[in-house]
Write a protein that binds this DNA or RNA. Structure first.
Length: 425
RNA sequence: GGAGAGGUGGCUGAGUGGUUGAAAGCGGCUCCCUGCUAAGGAGUUACAGGAGGCAACUUCUGUCGAGGGUUCGAAUCCCUCCCUCUCCGCCA
């Protein structure tokens, strides 16, 4: 959420920065609401001060012997009542404006950071670096073809169980997925991340806190009978892990590695990535998440990205790093590095991790602060996939495929999968 | 699902109508004393918003789960809702 004081006092600057995302934004109406709200607050608060003064005086006079039912006190009572009525009217207007203001503010995305490259579409994302040597060969299979051969998962029967865009991993496929989750968690916890296994049903407040609500309700699955949703990413529950808390400064940074299944409705993606593991309603992900002191979030962003890259490197998967331009930036992010893994079968780089710095955007929505000495400040939050497990499997299949139809696994994974290669059983 | 208890400051925990924004303890911060990884003393310390000031800070309002109500005045009385805990039932 944007700082409402900034919107009130500096709307042109804010509008200009939001405009970098590609859509012109007009904040004049919002600014007006903010100003009216403040004016009402002033009037109301002055009246209340007067009312408090009268209340105290009544108490004092009665204490010092005045007749509680005498004219003197009755007069004061009447004054008190008159003020109360005026306050009630002002309060009602003020409340309307405040909630209008809040609702609108919740609908605006984060301000891109200064360093975030300007752009009009994903074509303007900037490639920062590459790692590894992409395997190029037109005769390579796509991951779903390999998986079919090795019977790693069953999509047709999954339609029977749920619907399309669900997958049932089986045999070596299930084992690989499980091994990958453990592998990633072990790697991260060995570097000091605290492991988290959060609830996958989350309430509206949690989704609002991390930025999915109110704007992206149609992207998540909702439980109709309860105020609960299937989490689209562990970022949501982990953000709310510290919602409404003041974290002592000496405890920062807090670094979490959370595994969770993730659920997304993928509205509007009909026909895209319909085969295989790339785009599913349910997928597994290990998410890295930092709560940091606002002075240290920039370094943290480099580090969390490096920690996500470490997984790809350990799995010997070639990838590139993109610095997302303003047009491609997510709602809550100030700046984002996407990691794209090389899929030789598809002959393309595909997103496998997204590492974002959110500044105080989520912290303000979730009221997560830190205190050092006297000052209370909003913390900064960062998140990065480390990694999306299904897409990792796809990358392993395509990169490890052998002429004999088997798939050679990276050495680091062997202890986790219990075999060096996947082959027909 | 049934019965009961409870939601107070960073934490623990007092407080049943009028300087209670809130005792006490813990924790934090500042200073003093002392000094081998510690102890003692004094002071200070809620959050949010508004106004004034370059600032230190001053001042006003609101906040004791949320929302209503009674009252000149509510943490305290009344109503509704939410949440947590305990016991029973059910259950992996």
């Amino acid at each position: 959420m944007l700082d409402q004081r900034l919107v009130r006092d500096n709307p042109e600057t804010i509008a200009q920065q939001l405009g970098r995302r590609g859509k012109a934004v007009d904040l004049t109406k919002l600014q007006l609401i903010a100003q009216q709200q403040r004016d009402l607050e002033q009037q109301r608060s002055n009246l209340q001060a007067e009312g408090n003064r009268i209340g105290k005086e009544v108490g004092q006079r009665i204490k010092s012997g005045a007749d509680p039912n005498g004219d003197e006190v009755a007069e004061l009572r009447q004054q008190g009542n008159a003020i109360k009525q005026k306050v009630a009217v002002l309060e009602e207007d003020e409340k309307k404006l405040s909630s209008e203001l809040k609702q609108q503010l919740l609908g605006f995305p984060n301000l891109p950071s200064e360093a975030c490259p300007d752009g009009r579409s994903e074509d303007d994302n900037i490639e920062v670096r590459r790692w590894g040597t992409p395997r190029v060969d037109d005769n390579l299979d796509e991951h779903w073809q390999i998986a079919e051969r090795l019977q790693l998962f069953d999509t047709e029967r999954s339609v029977r169980i749920a619907q399309s865009r669900f997958v049932t991993l089986m045999g070596q496929g299930a084992r690989l997925e499980r091994g990958l989750i453990n592998f990633m968690l072990d790697l991260h916890t060995s570097k000091g991340y605290r492991e988290v296994l959060p609830p996958v049903l989350v309430n509206s407040a949690s989704l609002t806190g991390s930025g999915q609500l109110p704007k992206f309700a149609e992207e998540s699955f909702r439980c109709a009978e309860d105020d609960l949703w299937l989490t689209p990413t562990a970022e949501v529950p982990v953000t709310s892990l510290h919602r409404d808390e003041i974290i002592p400064a000496d405890q920062l940074p807090l670094r979490y590695a959370a595994y969770s299944p993730c659920f997304r409705r993928e509205a509007g993606s009909y026909g895209r990535d319909t085969r295989g593991l790339i785009r599913l309603h349910q997928f597994n992900k290990v998410e890295l998440y930092w709560f940091v002191h606002p002075d240290h979030s920039e370094e943290a962003h480099q580090q969390i990205t490096a920690d996500a890259e470490a997984v790809l490197q350990a799995l010997e998967l070639p990838y590139r790093v993109l610095d997302l331009c303003t047009a491609d930036l997510g709602f809550s992010a100030r700046r984002t590095y996407d990691l794209e893994v090389w899929l030789p079968g598809a002959g393309a780089y595909r997103e496998i991790s997204s590492c974002s710095i959110c500044g105080d955007f989520q912290a303000r929505r979730s009221s997560i602060r830190t205190k050092a000495g006297k000052a209370t400040k909003l913390v900064h939050t960062l998140n990065g996939s480390g990694l999306a497990v299904g897409r990792t499997m796809a990358a392993l299949l395509e990169n490890g495929q052998q002429p004999d139809g088997s798939v050679l696994l990276p050495k680091s994974l062997v202890p986790y999968v219990g075999r060096e290669r996947l082959q027909p059983e």
